Structures are given as structure tokens and as C-alpha cells.
Computed example of a mutant assay.
Amino acid sequence: MSLHADAYQLLAGWAAPDDRQAAMRASYLTHLQSHPDAMERSCLPQHLTASAIVITDDGTRVLLTLHRRLRRWLQTGGHCEDGDASVRAAALREATEESGIASLRVDPVPLRLDRHTLSCGGRADAEHLDVQMLATAPVDAVPAISAESLDLAWFDVDALPETDDSVRALVIAARRRLRAADLGPTPPRA
């Protein structure tokens, strides 16, 4: 299955948590239907991206990256790549690259969708149609900063740094998901 087909199937089967998210889901599906290249960064002004909020498997801490270009504390994530087999795989790749944690687990069901404007491909009006996933890490996981970040740090879920509403909403959704479904502890690395 292509990445495009996976994204369509994933979103078509996703039960959005509220009316606003349902409307966003419908717009993502329309975009996918009308753009065979919707998963590629060259699809402008809009293309789908994948991100993951990294939270300890006990739900107490969240890992955020101080984005080098945006200079804001954000979840891990970015553009999908040709080698990504699925949106989940793209989110896992991005989270692993940006966190340095090899033992992450990504829940197969999206947490939220977020549409945000970002200059891309030489355009100031480009929009990322972000599919946001939940990644869990062992409580003792030690992150390693990547070249994409100015900083990388664990924060108590109740004491986030200055960030935007989308990150706060994502953390709330992650905590709800962890409480609702026991994803189990992350297995130790071999």
C-alpha cells in the first residue's frame, strides 16, 4: 500500500474526537482525493505531515524540542519521505530522529489533526496538514538532541514551557489516550 493510500485509509477510519477535528478530517480526505502528491512536500500550498508527541509510558513527562528555525517548543515531526510505508512509520521515524530514543512505540490511531501555516518550498502561504500521533518512551529514556533542535527536554505534563495551544491540546489528548487504553510499558532494549 502506498503512503498516500495509507493516509487516506487511516483518516477515513479515524473517529474524530469532536466536530472541529471531524471537519479537519474531512478537509484532509478531500485534499488526499484531489492530490495524488498530497504526501510530498512539493505539493503546495498544502501537504500532509506526520508528528508525534513523545510521552513517558507512565504519562508523567513529555519530551519537547526547541525547534531550530521556529524557536518554539514543539512535538517531534516533519515531512513524510519516500521510504515511509505509513503515516505511523513517518511519525516514528521523525520522533526517533529528533529524540534520539530508539525504543519509542507509536500508537496506530491518530490523536489529533492540526493545520498550520509555515513557509515551505519558497512559499509563505504553505500549510502543513499535520497528522499527530502518540509515541511512548520508557520512563528512563535518555534523549539525544538532533541538528534540527536548539534544545530537547523532558517536561512534567503539568508544567509545560511556553508553547502554543496546539501543543497543549496534543498533550491533553495524549494523557487522555494513556488513561483510556493501557498501551503497556515500553519493552526494554535488547
Rank of each mutant, 00 (worst) to 15 (best):
D82Y: 08
S42A: 13
H31M: 06
Q75P: 10
A38Y: 02
L134G: 00
V139K: 10
A12R: 05
A90Q: 04
D19N: 10
L64M: 14
R179L: 13
T117N: 10
A190F: 06
L32R: 02
G83F: 11
T163N: 04
L48R: 03
A141M: 07
A159Q: 15
A144G: 11
F155D: 01
H67R: 15
A135S: 12
S149Q: 12
G77T: 05
G83I: 05
V167E: 14
D156P: 07
D130E: 10
H31L: 11
Q21H: 06
A180I: 00
T117R: 15
F155Q: 02
R168M: 06
G100F: 01
P110I: 09
S2R: 03
S51L: 07
V54S: 09
A144K: 12
A89W: 11
I172T: 15
T65V: 11
A135L: 10
T96Q: 11
A26Y: 02
P143F: 01
W73A: 07
I172S: 12
A124P: 01
H47K: 07
S42K: 10
C120A: 11
H31I: 05
L134I: 04
F155G: 02
P185W: 03
G83E: 13
R176A: 14
A159K: 14
C120R: 05
S27W: 03
A15I: 11
V87F: 07
R88Y: 02
V54F: 07
R61P: 04
S103F: 03
L183Y: 13
A169V: 04
T56I: 05
M133C: 05
R20F: 07
S149N: 09
T136K: 05
C80I: 09
E148T: 06
E97L: 09
S27P: 00
G184H: 05
R88V: 15
A135N: 09
E162M: 11
Q46D: 14
A153D: 08
Q46E: 15
I172V: 14
A173R: 07
M24Y: 06
G100T: 05
W14S: 07
A50P: 09
T65R: 15
E97T: 08
G13E: 08
W154V: 04
H31C: 07
I145V: 14
G78H: 01
R105A: 13
F155E: 03
